[in-house]
Structure formats: structure tokens, C-alpha cells
Design a protein around this nucleic acid. Structure first.
Lengths: 230, 230
DNA sequence: CCCGCTAAAGTGACTTTGTCACAGATAGAC
DNA sequence: GTCTATCTGTGACAAAGTCACTTTAGCGGG
């Protein structure tokens, strides 16, 4: 096991992250590919890839999450999706398939462990192994779907609706995030998040703490996110 | 040749559009696949697919263009990309690979002719034919890149900059479009386009006509799009 | 040729978001 | 407890989106 431990925000210079899709019952299948790859790990906060980097390996994530973000020229950022254990990363697959560089940033959330598969092996598996091919394609398709969801969301300019939906979707556990991070998730400004959360708190839908938001009334948030009435 | 001719906006109920990527020198290769497929055609303005539809065939576009749009719940629309002869459509490939329905709209611009390949044949070619596999992947990757470009663009909230860039990029021929269509290209409101074009005209960068915009000073537009100074 | 219809474009008023520049508040270190 | 870094709240203004409406251009019929 190669342990990457460079401090934060460190940069992985080893084979970079790619992941494959999986159906729940295919998880065992993943272990079949371990012999073809090399185990790697990276600590929380590691920068896995950045715009301009090239993919050097296909990775199967076995634990941890990679947050994939896109930042435009003006510095505004939005979170495209999260790569969880067994999930797939379009950007990386795209890079590997086409030998184009990445267009976004990938950061580790928690320690990420993964199995790195060399591009040559990746291509061989893709041609010879039906299950592998299916895993890659399914994951690829799922991620494209998430990209179009992000576009859908960005077309909606009412931040209060977007924020309400976002909060309702993660109402289970109190969200331990700074408001600046929430703004980044949605691709908006911190101040707007601050103001909007305040009104939600006034309505009794949430409680706000430093680096924390707790949902009190998931139903109200979801309804607001749907109908847009306040 | 099956000629689809249903009037506008008609709906193609035949095998729907998918296309493959191509490198310039692979164009001849396309003809190799014709024997596996069936020729179809659709007139200008035809609705090729809509959200919820399922892909029933992989199409190789041989002439014409398909404009792929995404419309959110509130009805705001943005153009994701255009599928030209030989180009590929991620949405369609995604649908075909994963058997998920489409998430956007596809409209013909000009008469579109294409070769339809059944999903089974598509999968066989993908596994057995290296060139075909490469074409699909290259095109797939290119389209994902365009999706991330759209996201990049939507993160930029200054419509004047986005419009300036958009105009500069198509400065060659006078743009024969309604302002409402331009708004749709950029995912913004017609009124904003109207006002912004007016200021550009005042600066002497363009001339405006009914259903037409002509670029006079491409350089100024490009510079404005880059630097954001007015 | 002109009338009148339709669709495109322009406009003003107002709301919301984004941006900037701070001020206030809180957690953690010492 | 105090200090400091960082997170959060706010006010002011510019830009964009929305709504409701007017004006204008193009086109077809008489």
C-alpha cells in the first residue's frame, strides 16, 4: 500500500483518481480487479487532480469520497458531484478515454483508498470484460445525468429555492459546513447564503450555528423548493 | 430511405438520434457502418427527442445539425451543444449505454440525414471494433467537455460578457436569430439580451436588425468578453 | 398601396442576486 | 481571560431577472 501523505492541500503525483460504477451486487466483482491494480490512499483534503492534469490511471475507489468541483475564470465554484466508493467520475473517465486533461478539481473528503489500474489494462478490460464495460458505462451515464442536473439547477436563479431543496435533501444529519462551503456547493455567494439561511431560520425551518445548519422542517423546505412561495 | 415528414414541430417516432464522434480522416470509415444501419431523414425543426424518451437506435448523422437543449422546471432553457455531421451526442450515447431516458430536447436545424444502428449492433461494434470504440469515446469526451463549458458559462453571471463572447465566436456570418433565441442559447432572458445588444450597438460593435445581429468589431467584443471592462 | 395583424423588439418599474466593504461574533490557543 | 483568526451578518449599490406594457417591423389580403 502506497500511503500518500503530503499535508493539506497536498497534491497526488501518483496515478490519479478514476473510479468505476457499480451495481450493489457487483461490489464483489470489484475485488476481481484488484490483482490488476495497485492500492493507493490519500488523506482528507488531498487535491487529487486539477484542470490541465492528465489521467494516468483508472482508479476504483474503495473508501472515502472525492468532491469534484468546477471553477470558472472569475473564481466562482460549483460542486459537480461526489465520487463515493464504487462510484464513477466522468471527468476522469473522459480524460482517460480521450487523453484530454481534466477540467475540474478533485478533493478528497475523508481518507480515500483506491485501486489504481493502468490505462492499458483499463482499455483491455473495457474490451474483454462485459461486466467491467457495463460498470464503466453505467457510471458514466449516471455522472452525465448529474452534470445535466447541475445545469438545470444553475438555470434556476432563485437561490432561496435551490438552497431549500439542497437543505431538504440532506435533512437527515445536521450539516456541518461553513456557509462559504454551502455557497460553493450551489455556485453562489456566501452573503446570499447567509441572508437566505437567516430568513429560513426566521420561518422556523432551520437553526443556524457556527459551521452548522440543522433542519427542523424538511417538509416546509421541500415545499418551498418546489413551489417557490415564501 | 425512410423520409420522416410530419410538419413542424414534428416528432420522430422512428429510431432516434445518436451520433458518433469522428476524426477528420475517419470520415470514410463511417461509410463502413452504413451496411449495419438504416438511412433516415428528418426535416428542419423536427423534435428528435424529449425528456423521458428512450434511445432506440444509435445514429450517425451525415448531414444537418441537431440542437440539444436543456429546460428546467421553471421553463428556462439553455443550448447544451449542437450535433453536426459526424459529431456525437452524449445524451443519446448515455441513454443507449445505460438505458436511461433523455434529459433534454433535440431539434433538427436544417434537414438531418442519418444512419440508424440498432442498440445490439452498437454494442457489438463497441466491443469488436477498435476504431468504432475510439470514435464513440472521443465524441463522448468532447461532449462532456462542452457540458462543463456550459456550466463554466452559467457560473458567469455577467450576461454582457457572455453575450460578447458568444457574438465574437460567430462573427463570421451575420447571425440570423431572434433575440429570444439568443437568450435561449445563453440561458438568460430576452429583455436582458435586448438591452445588452443595444449598448453594444451604441458602442459601434454591432448592428441590430429584426431577427439579425451583425458583428462590426469582433476584436472589441472579444476583448470585452475577456476583460469585462465596458 | 395601404390597412391591419402578428410577432419581434424596446422600456420602465420593481425584485432578487452578486459584490464590496465592513462590523460583529465565536472558537480555540496561549 | 484575552487575543486572534475565522466565520457570519449587514448595508449599499450594480447587475440581472421578471412583469407588464408599448412600439415597431414585416407580411398578407384586399
Amino acid at each position: 500500500m502506497i500511503m500518500v501523505n503530503l499535508g493539506l492541500p497536498a497534491r497526488v503525483r501518483l496515478p490519479q483518481l478514476i473510479c468505476i460504477a457499480r451495481e450493489r451486487n457487483d461490489m464483489n466483482k470489484l475485488t476481481d480487479y484488484i490483482k490488476d491494480g495497485e492500492k493507493i490512499a490519500a488523506p482528507d483534503g488531498t487535491l487529487m487532480f486539477a484542470p490541465g492534469d492528465e489521467s494516468r490511471a483508472f482508479l476504483i475507489v474503495t473508501s472515502g469520497t472525492v468532491r469534484v468541483e468546477q471553477t470558472n475564470a472569475a473564481g466562482r465554484t460549483v460542486v459537480l458531484y461526489r465520487v463515493k466508493a464504487g462510484d464513477s467520475c466522468v471527468l476522469t473517465t473522459t480524460c482517460l478515454l480521450s487523453e484530454r486533461p481534466y477540467s475540474g478539481f478533485g478533493y478528497c473528503e475523508g481518507e480515500v483508498r483506491a485501486i489504481a489500474i493502468a490505462p492499458k489494462t483499463f482499455r483491455r478490460l473495457l474490451q474483454t470484460d462485459d461486466v467491467f464495460q457495463n460498470l464503466v458505462f453505467q457510471g458514466f451515464a449516471a455522472r452525465v445525468g448529474e452534470l445535466t442536473d447541475v445545469i438545470d439547477d444553475l438555470l434556476e436563479h432563485r437561490t432561496d429555492l435551490r438552497l431549500a431543496r439542497w437543505l431538504a435533501d440532506r435533512a437527515d444529519d445536521p450539516t456541518e459546513m461553513k456557509q462559504s462551503e454551502i455557497a460553493q456547493e450551489l455556485g453562489t455567494a456566501r452573503e446570499v447564503v447567509s441572508r437566505t439561511l437567516k430568513t429560513f431560520e426566521d420561518y422556523g425551518w432551520i437553526t443556524i450555528g457556527r459551521g452548522r445548519v440543522s433542519v427542523l422542517d424538511q417538509g416546509a423546505l421541500r415545499a418551498h423548493g418546489q413551489r417557490g412561495q415564501m
